[in-house]
């Protein structure tokens, strides 16, 4: 197992490098620069600024210098937030995004699995159809529609929940963003769970387990559940990626001080180091969580387990 993990971590290095290089050159290729909005500045000042951030050098050289810096664990200074280093900004944003995304994925897993099992047990009854139709709608409606509608109903009309702000992650501030973020994942996970459950319960080995005289709860818990959860674990990687990209929009809509906000601010202002920092953190998180999903998968399914 350990060698499997270290091997996977090793292959993650080139992946990460490609992501970094891609982001770096794409961003330099995009029109505009960090000081375009500062038109009132003297040209010499701008030149000095560009020199301070290495922007006067050829792009390849900029990249090499950036990578060298990165190798020392330094993400560089932010351009927009002049008094902060990118590392400091990430230290502010990451805990917020982690908490929001973590809670959202847990909520999505819990609700999605329950709905799916519930629908599977009531297959082809109206309750199944209603659950699955709602799930499909939840998937089809994008977050930037769901979020304002939720805010409108619970924040402005009912005045039950704050419409924005983080407030140090207070429960009432988290409810709406978590719902908006988890909803599409709930939709997918519930459909996956339902299908997986129906499929597994038809398997020959389930019939064998019943033929042994095991009560149904043992048949399900001991012979079915692991197999039912396999497609869910496979989907965990994409789900996490979905939550991450979703949180970029959701953090913006609800005004939360997370990674997503720094990513968007960075991108709009061509704050190259800041964008690079957020991209690297996102990519690393996705790689690590996918690895975690693979480890769980190997634990659940002996056929893919490696020595």
């Amino acid at each position: 197992m350990l060698s499997f993990i270290s091997r996977r971590l090793l292959t993650a290095v080139p992946t990460l490098f490609v992501v970094i290089a891609g982001a770096f050159f794409l961003m330099r290729a995009a029109p505009g620069g960090p000081f375009d909005a500062d038109a009132q500045l003297e040209p010499e000042v701008i030149d000095n600024l560009r020199a301070a951030y290495d922007l006067d050098r050829p792009v390849i050289e900029q990249f090499v210098r950036y990578m060298a810096r990165l190798a020392r664990g330094d993400f560089g200074p932010s351009i927009t937030y002049a008094d902060y280093s990118v590392t400091e900004l990430l230290a502010i944003g990451l805990p917020v995004s982690l908490k929001l995304g973590g809670v959202a994925i847990l909520v999505a897993l819990a609700v999605g699995c329950l709905l799916g099992i519930f629908a599977a047990l009531n297959r082809n009854r109206w309750i199944d159809y209603v659950t699955m139709t709602v799930a499909m709608t939840g998937f089809a409606v994008p977050a930037f529609v769901v979020a304002p509608v939720l805010t409108l109903i619970f924040g402005l009309y009912l005045k039950l929940l704050p419409i924005s702000g983080w407030n140090d992650g207070a429960l009432s501030n988290m409810i709406l963003p978590v719902i908006a973020l988890a909803l599409p994942q709930i939709a997918i996970l519930s459909r996956l769970t339902r299908g997986s459950m129906l499929e597994v319960m038809r398997a020959n080995y389930i019939r064998t387990a019943r033929a042994k005289g095991l009560p149904e709860y043992k048949v399900v818990a001991s012979h079915a559940l692991k197999a039912v959860s396999l497609p869910l674990v496979s989907y965990l990687g994409p789900a996490i990626a979905g939550i991450m990209t979703g949180s970029v929009i959701i953090e913006q809509i609800f005004g939360l001080p997370g990674m997503g906000r720094y990513f968007i601010q960075g991108a709009l202002n061509r704050d190259y180091p800041l964008v690079m920092g957020t991209v690297i953190v996102y990519a690393t998180a996705i790689i690590l969580l996918n690895l975690l999903a693979d480890v769980i998968y190997g634990y659940l399914d002996p056929r893919v387990r490696r020595e």
Partner: peptide, 15 residues
Amino acid sequence: AIVFQDSITGLTPHK
């Protein structure tokens, strides 16, 4: 007790 016809797939893979 019964020995099923398709017993190749009759054992639970993860136990």
